[in-house]
Amino acid sequence: MIGAPRSRCTMRSDIRDVESCGLIIPEDVIIGDVTHPASKVGCSNASPYVPNPPQPASEDDAAIVARIAARRAPRPLQALDLTLLHSPPVADGWNSFLGAVRTKTSLDDRAREIAICRVAVCNGAWYEWGHHAPLARAAGVSEEGMGVVGRDALLVEGGEDGDREERGRKEAERAGLGEREWAVLSEREVVEVTATVAAYNCVSRFLVALDVGEKNGTGPEAGH
């Protein structure tokens, strides 16, 4: 529920990875399936979202909220926006960067949404999948194609790796996901599809780390 407090923060990572970076793990943070209580900074009862509508503390912050709302229109602010707005400057930069990746590249909608959905699957970011799978379908990806994109592993089971890869490629082609259907050809397209994958890897890592939208541990059928 937007604006509702949580009793604890959640992160999908490994304790050793976090501690090896020199980060302090807050009290009652769950990492994987382990509660790590030793803390110097607590996050118990913290809200993952700012109030909706947001309550900017300055004119600059109000302008940031307006820019984000303008990009989302006619939709309302999303759970991701309300999380990012805990730090208005970060939310502003995020809005500008992702706005360019989503709406200002030369990639066709189909190629872009396939790439984003595949990143969501690889990172278990089901909030991201719930928003972008309908866009992929609207761009012409068939249900069979979405079934391929939504797999944990793209290689089909059984046989040698080379054979599994070839059978997986043929299955993807039957589902309308072959190289001919969504190949990127120009240098600009190569840069743009790489930037799209990188950007949405960042998005999905953020979504999963903070469980934005409360979709962690669900699956592609969870919706949004």
Rank of each mutant, 00 (worst) to 15 (best):
N95S: 13
A172K: 03
C202I: 09
V34H: 09
V141A: 03
V203Q: 07
V212N: 05
V65F: 06
S96Q: 14
R180M: 03
L23C: 04
R180P: 01
I68P: 00
D163I: 11
A46P: 00
P48L: 15
L80P: 00
L177C: 09
K40Q: 14
D161R: 12
A199M: 10
L82I: 04
L84Q: 13
F206H: 13
Y49R: 00
R75G: 02
R112S: 02
V203P: 00
L82A: 06
F97S: 09
I68N: 02
K170W: 08
R118Q: 09
R164M: 09
C43M: 15
R180H: 04
V212H: 05
G150R: 07
W94H: 11
S44D: 12
E143K: 13
H86L: 02
G223D: 05
Q78S: 04
A153W: 03
V149S: 12
P220L: 02
D81L: 06
I31S: 03
P37R: 07
R6I: 05
W126S: 09
L185C: 04
E179I: 09
A136T: 12
V191I: 12
K170V: 14
V119C: 06
A172C: 08
A66V: 02
V193P: 07
E165V: 11
P220D: 02
H132P: 09
H131Q: 07
L82D: 04
R6N: 04
D152H: 10
E181C: 09
P37T: 00
G93T: 08
K104P: 00
A209D: 06
D161T: 12
S96R: 15
A133I: 14
R118H: 12
R110A: 01
D211I: 04
V184F: 08
P134A: 05
A125F: 08
E189D: 05
D163V: 15
G159I: 03
G147Q: 14
H36W: 12
R174N: 13
P51K: 09
G42W: 08
N52H: 14
A199S: 15
E192P: 10
I114F: 13
I30M: 06
A115L: 07
T103Y: 03
D109P: 01
Q78Y: 01
E113V: 01
P51C: 11
L80G: 05
N45G: 04
Y127Q: 02
A172W: 08
V34C: 05
Y200L: 04
E192R: 05
A195S: 14
E27M: 08
I114G: 11
